[in-house]
């Protein structure tokens, strides 16, 4: 077995998220949650030919759907998704910015209703985004904000 296999185990079935912006893997795990059906391997600051450094996450026996993997766009728009079945890549998926983001961002406006009632969850509309920033509008208080990691719940 090569060194590579010891670093992050190869999986027979499941989802591989590769080329994650370095150190964002834990944030992504925060959003996607650790699934209880299988092993989750996380690699941080691996060497990458493309970008110098990268993170990688492998979910064994868990098939993440597109709605879930698109949430990664907020932190790592160029990450790649591979769905593995019986040791073969059956789907290579690109991440697309979702038009609506539920729950995972908190509104920076202290007088937004979502910050003042326990049963009002957040919802943001993606207004525009580019390489450097993502601008979202709170569905409730209508204020626009740039997504920064401090706003992730």
């Amino acid at each position: 077995m090569s060194d590579q296999h010891y670093r992050v185990f190869k999986i027979e079935n499941g989802t591989v998220i590769d080329h994650i912006v370095p150190t964002m893997a834990l944030k992504i795990i925060d959003i996607l949650g650790i699934r209880d059906k299988g092993l989750v391997s996380i690699g941080i600051n691996f060497d990458s030919g493309k970008t110098g450094k990268k993170d990688i996450i492998k979910f064994e026996n868990v098939y993440l759907d597109k709605t879930e993997t698109d949430l990664i766009a907020l932190f790592s728009p160029h990450a790649t998704i591979n769905i593995i079945k019986d040791n073969k890549v059956i789907e290579k998926r690109k991440i697309e910015m979702p038009s609506v983001i539920n729950s995972i961002i908190k509104c920076p406006n202290p007088t937004c209703v979502t910050n003042n009632y326990r049963d009002c969850d957040t919802k943001f509309i993606v207004e525009r985004f580019d390489e450097n920033s993502t601008i979202v509008r709170c569905y409730y208080c209508e204020k626009e904000t740039t997504v920064i990691s401090e706003l992730i719940k």
Binding site: T111, C112, T114, N116, C120, C138, Y139, C141, K143
Partner: peptide, 10 residues
């Protein structure tokens, strides 16, 4: 009418 923004939408 409510003091919090977004109250009507919620």
């Amino acid at each position: 009418r409510h003091p919090f923004e977004g109250a009507a939408r919620a």
